[in-house]
Amino acid sequence: MKHKKSSYIDLFAGCGGLSLGLHNSGMWEGKFAIEKSPDAFETLEYNLIKNKPHFDWPSWLPQSAHDINEIIEKYPEQLQKLRGSIDMVAGGPPCQGFSTAGRRVENDNRNRLIGSYIEFIRLVQPKIIFFENVKGFTQKFDKNKVKGRIYSKYVENALRRKNSRLNSLGYEVSGHLVDFSEFGVPQKRTRFILVGVRKDLAQSIIPQQFFSNIESNKQDFLINKGIGITNSLEDAISDLL
């Protein structure tokens, strides 16, 4: 008997790296992906739409690059009709304004996309949320003129709240910093990962368990993949030579 795959939407999808991982797991099928950059979307389309029919793309949404605010403004009714059919919304808003590797400017316009992300979640109300951003997302903007909030806490608190205007139930959420070099990634790559579960499901699915499970299963994961905790760049790409 064929196992029914879980559905998801990929926000700020880039060239489709996260969608590719979900596709390769064999457990997920994409509904659609939202990416503003035409070049990035063209790569995603080539790999995961034309060469691998991974998305069950809705007829109401043109299969092209889109700004998330455009989607929210043009298709709010269609998004609300997705309620009950989407298992997960995955992805994270652009990180450039938060990254300590760059200029780290709080009033970067891209930082406002956090609000767009929250609005999208409230419209669609997926069962679970998988959110990713840089380590700087968890830090204050102390050096800027605008003494800003810690955005990770803002997102967590906003997602927990119910929203009567959109009849949104809110989410139980848990956010942690994860060092991906401990999972075989050949670079020191610490990311903020937030997992959310819709409150009507939170008694049976506890978001904190996600982080407990990946920590307890880390060694088994590495052994099964045949890699070490300090996987080198040579180990990662030597098979490409």
Score class of each variant (00 low, 15 high):
L159M: 07
Q139N: 08
A101F: 14
E77P: 04
S59P: 11
P76I: 02
D67T: 10
L177R: 15
I237A: 04
L48M: 04
D142V: 11
F192S: 05
G26D: 09
G228T: 08
R160Q: 09
S85M: 12
R198D: 09
A13N: 00
D200I: 03
L44N: 04
I129P: 04
G30C: 13
A101W: 13
R103T: 12
F41I: 01
I128H: 02
N51K: 14
D67H: 12
R83K: 05
I72F: 07
E156Q: 00
K145N: 10
I227D: 05
F137T: 10
R149F: 13
R160C: 11
K74E: 11
N144E: 13
H3K: 13
V185R: 05
F141L: 08
A33F: 07
D179W: 10
V134G: 03
R110A: 05
K153H: 13
W28E: 06
G136T: 10
Y171H: 02
V146Q: 02
I237W: 03
I72Y: 06
N133C: 05
I71E: 02
I150A: 12
H66Q: 07
I128D: 01
L20K: 09
G97M: 01
L22K: 02
V155Y: 03
S7L: 08
I49A: 09
F98K: 07
L233G: 12
S7G: 11
Y75F: 03
K145W: 14
L82P: 09
S232D: 09
S212E: 14
N144Q: 08
F221Y: 14
A101D: 12
K2N: 15
E42C: 14
I237R: 02
S6V: 15
Y151K: 12
N24T: 12
D239N: 14
E234H: 13
A158D: 10
L82F: 08
D142M: 13
I205N: 01
E132T: 02
G30N: 13
Q139C: 07
S6C: 15
S174P: 10
K143C: 08
R112D: 10
Q139L: 08
W57A: 04
D179I: 08
D67C: 10
A101T: 11
R191Y: 04
L113Y: 00
K74G: 09
I214Y: 01
I118E: 04
D142R: 15
Y46N: 14
D108E: 05
G196T: 04
D87A: 00
K188Q: 12
L48F: 00
E106F: 09
S19N: 01
N107K: 12
N231A: 13
N111L: 03
N224W: 14
S216M: 13
K199Q: 11
E42F: 13
G91E: 12
F55A: 00
S204I: 08
M27Y: 11
S181H: 09
L201Y: 07
E215W: 10
M27R: 13
K135Y: 15
